[in-house]
Design a protein around this nucleic acid. Structure first.
Lengths: 210, 210
DNA sequence: CCATGTGAACAAATTCACAGCA
DNA sequence: TGCTGTGAATTTGTTCACATGG
């Protein structure tokens, strides 16, 4: 019902999940689904589904549930997936190259438009299906490709500098895979994807202390 | 001070970050640091640092701060990093191969002991520095290597089946990179690392609705 | 006197429970 | 009747403020 956007990250992540669930239901030719149906099918919480969705309008039909197609369309649009987002990969090592191939594969909302690196042996070649450009041309690459999102996959030692460069170049959102905590600043969105932390979370929980 | 483990994921992730910060301070030959010092240096919250650390004992010295070496050692131990954790990679495509090289690089707490895949052209070769074994030998591989943690990097369509197999094979913790919501069950730890969701979070926030 | 450790206040997120509509 | 949408209750997490101890 509300129109202002103070949606939490947690809610946002769930919207993304809901959309994926709906896509699956669409493949099964279903027409409507109740919050309870979604919940049991995909191990979610029905109340939470209703709360999350109600933030953006009254989609549901009481006594019936949600119409899958319109709801999926609305989520698609809400998440900004109705236009193509150009992405650059910063650091075309193995991980960067793998992600370049991974993102945008079978997807028409995201496109990896370039990689950048500072290793001369990689520059001006194709890797992972994208052209690799010189890191020192970053600003030009961003301008040229209108990239909004950067995936940061450089070694830890280079992460802070690269991050600063990305800000200067006008990137608006960064997914950081380097195990270095960067700080969100200005209007820039930052998401830390920290494999090391995830593994350490596991090992703590595997045999908890005392 | 408490001895029972009901530590939240959020706290756990922060412990991992604290340890990394302490490592940096160690490289700078520092001896002690106050919660305030840590906070301003690394853009954290001093109160939260104290609350988080106090859960595991009284490490700090009032009026002084924390002794870096003992605290780092304790966190290292708490996080289970004082022994080596064998990891298998399930799905040795580009992403799996890249992660195989990435994890365990320069690290003595984690070791990738094998990859598994069902593509015959990959099986029994080395990729990303590890031996690739046949997915159908999973149980044997897990037994042999005593792997506790699995990194799941198979295509979406295969994720659920592979996950089930991992449970059967006795894996205790899974890091899932496939864009498929799996459900945590039994004593098994599950962590979703969903690139797609992260990107969609970005695009929502880049131009929020209405 | 300074910085920790912590109870108490506050804020955020989740779950409950039910009124109201198709 | 069945399921949504939502206030109210609860749980969880964070911040404040200060008593306590080196």
């Amino acid at each position: 019902m509300s129109e202002s956007h103070n949606t939490s990250t947690a809610t946002l992540n769930r919207l993304s999940v809901y959309l994926r669930c709906l896509r699956e239901l669409q493949r099964e030719q279903l027409d409507t689904i109740s919050s309870q149906g979604l919940a049991t099918r995909f191990h979610l919480s029905s109340t939470q589904i209703r709360k999350d969705l109600a933030q953006f309008g009254d989609f549901g039909i009481r006594g019936v549930g949600y119409q899958i197609d319109p709801l999926a369309n609305r989520l698609h649009q809400l998440l900004g997936l109705d236009r193509k987002h150009p992405i650059i990969i910063v650091g075309m090592g193995n991980l960067g190259t793998a992600l370049a191939g991974y993102i945008g594969f079978n997807d028409d909302s995201f496109e990896v438009v370039a990689g950048v690196d500072c290793d001369p042996s990689k520059i001006d070649r194709r890797r992972g299906g994208v052209d690799v450009r010189d890191m020192s041309d970053l600003e030009a690459v961003v301008k040229e490709t209108r990239a909004e999102i950067a995936v940061l996959t450089v070694p830890a030692a280079a992460a802070v500098d690269c991050y600063e460069s990305l800000i200067k170049a006008g990137i608006r959102s960064v997914l950081n895979f380097a195990p270095v905590p960067l700080q969100e600043k200005g209007g820039l969105r930052l998401k830390q994807v920290d494999l090391r932390t995830y593994l350490e979370e596991s090992t703590f929980l595997l045999d908890p202390p005392s």
